[in-house]
Structure formats: structure tokens, C-alpha cells
């Protein structure tokens, strides 16, 4: 499966990139496990996530073609 990943704000700066594409040999993976797969460690505290532009949780399942976003707590408008 192929997943598009976005990072925003402080996290985007720390990662040194805004986007990446993840290729995985499975049919689904949780948002938290996707982070571990990409970065080799546990998701940071207070990490916020979205799947297909809807707020999600670390146990939300991601499937082929999905868009996943990781970001720090929002500041608000």
C-alpha cells in the first residue's frame, strides 16, 4: 500500500520535509505504527494526527491511498 504523509509547523521543520510517500507491504496500519515505521521510535507526546483531512487518533487505521498528517497542537486562528 502507498500512503501520503504530511508534516506541519514545528514538526515539519524538525523533520526537514513537509511531505513524503510511504510504501508498505501490508494492507493497513495504524497511524501510530506508521510513525514507528517511518521514524523508528514512538510518536512524540501531544502529537496530533489526521487521516484524509479528518482528525484521527493513533489507533486509526490507514489504508492504501490514504493521506496522513502529523502535526503539533493547533494554535487556532
Amino acid at each position: 500500500m502507498t500512503v501520503t504523509v504530511h508534516y506541519f509547523a514545528r514538526l515539519r521543520e524538525e523533520m526537514g520535509r513537509a511531505d513524503e510517500t510511504a510504501e508498505l507491504p501490508t494492507e493497513s496500519i495504524s497511524v501510530g505504527d506508521l510513525w514507528r515505521h517511518l521514524h523508528g521510535d514512538a510518536p512524540p507526546e501531544r502529537l496530533m494526527v489526521a487521516v484524509n483531512q479528518e482528525q484521527a487518533a493513533l489507533d486509526t487505521l490507514v489504508r492504501d491511498g490514504d493521506e496522513v498528517a502529523y502535526f503539533p497542537p493547533v494554535t487556532g486562528g
Binding site: P72, T75, G77
Partner: peptide, 11 residues
């Protein structure tokens, strides 16, 4: 609600 919930980040 916009001030608390909307996905904006300020630098």
C-alpha cells in the same frame, strides 16, 4: 471555536 480548534499554526 475558530480560535481553539481550527488547524492553524503561528510562528
Amino acid at each position: 471555536r475558530l480560535k481553539h480548534e481550527a488547524p492553524f499554526w503561528k510562528r
